[in-house]
Simulated scan of single mutants.
Amino acid sequence: MTRSNPKRTSPATGTPPTRTRTAAALLATALTAALVAGCATTPRAGGDDSVNGSLKPRARTGPVLAVKIDNARAARPHTGLGAADVVYVEPVEGGMSRLMAVYATKLPPAVGPVRSARQSDLELLRQFDRPVLAFSGAQRKLHPLIDRAPLRAVEPGEVSGAYYRGRSKRAPHNLYLRPRRLVRAAPGAGALEATGFRFGPAPSGGRATVSRTVRYPAARFTFTWSAARGRWLVAMDGRAARTVAPATVVVQYVKVRKSRFRDVLGNHTPYPQTVGSGRASVLRGGRAYDVVWERARAADGTRFRTRDGRRVDFAPGQVWVVLARAS
């Protein structure tokens, strides 16, 4: 749990923020958003622009939308998560997890529940070209870093009608986003290419794998291969997540250090370092491939290669990237 900034939205109440920006900065933001929206084109559903439908996506036409999603038990089942092209699983305070869903080929009617941002999100999102980040609240000292990051950050109250409270769950697990209020059209799968996400045939080798479990101190994710569906079935904390079934799962082992931010109980916020290099395991087609990941700079995409240097492609469809602590 993060401490809310009185100048921004409270994660519990959704109170509109009063961010202090100059009139010139607001005007520049509005003009930029209008230009992006005007240049975007709507992709064909399930057609050539879709990761699920093509191995040769067209060039991107706008920013991706990234949404921070609550993953507490009370927040499940999620809404709109199955439409995401990429789902990042991140460690947070108390050994728990949060999700960040990235939308490039399609925009669902609603996404959520939406929760707060972390410092490590800013580094992770540098891979994308000025993405839109939807979140609800952050620590007060983190807000200046968010404002300086090369992205468009949108909290509740900043865009009319973008966020709303659902009735099926209790606050703070009931805040949802209408994506088309922030991004008029999905940019297409080409927006993923610069990040190192390549879709194509499976590499040779690998080992047959029926199931894989990744554990955090207070969270557990199990991926079980379904030959009938050609997808990995996801279970969170032992309970099936029926709205998602990724084609590829990447377990990316990273260094996790303490950030300089703490929660209200004084616990340091974990900072998974996604710049650098390390080992990873790519699960696709019922097989596991031991690979190496590399990302030299924050602005670079993450490259996945076999140990002899060959590029590793992903199966067409949703990709989950689980950030696990390197041993």
Rank of each mutant, 00 (worst) to 15 (best):
A110N: 05
R98K: 14
G161H: 06
E158M: 14
F128V: 02
T105C: 02
E93I: 11
F128D: 09
V92S: 05
E158F: 10
D147W: 13
L107N: 10
G95A: 08
G112A: 04
F128T: 02
G95T: 04
S116A: 08
L107T: 13
G112K: 03
E123S: 15
P144R: 10
Y103L: 06
E93Y: 04
T105N: 01
R148K: 15
E155T: 12
A110V: 03
A110P: 00
R98Y: 07
E90A: 10
A153L: 10
L99V: 04
Q139K: 13
R118A: 06
R118L: 01
D147C: 06
A134D: 09
P108M: 04
K106M: 00
L133R: 05
P150R: 11
L124E: 12
P91W: 10
V89T: 12
V111R: 03
P131K: 08
G157W: 08
V92H: 06
V102F: 04
D147N: 13
E123F: 13
G112V: 01
E93C: 03
G137N: 11
V154F: 04
D121L: 02
L122T: 07
S97K: 02
V102H: 09
Y103E: 12
K106R: 14
S97G: 05
K106P: 00
V102K: 03
P113L: 09
V159K: 15
L133G: 09
S116D: 06
D129C: 00
P91Y: 11
L151D: 10
P150T: 07
E90D: 13
P108Q: 02
A104E: 07
E93G: 03
V102Q: 04
E155C: 04
M96E: 14
Y103F: 15
M100A: 14
K141M: 10
R140A: 14
S136P: 01
P108L: 03
A149S: 15
L124A: 13
E90Q: 15
V92Y: 04
V154D: 05
H143D: 10
E158R: 14
Q139H: 13
I146A: 09
H143W: 15
R98W: 07
R152C: 00
G95R: 10
A149E: 07
A104M: 11
V154W: 03
V89P: 00
Q139I: 08
V111F: 03
A101P: 05
K141L: 14
D129A: 13
Q119D: 12
G157A: 04
M100N: 08
V154H: 01
P131V: 07
Q127L: 01
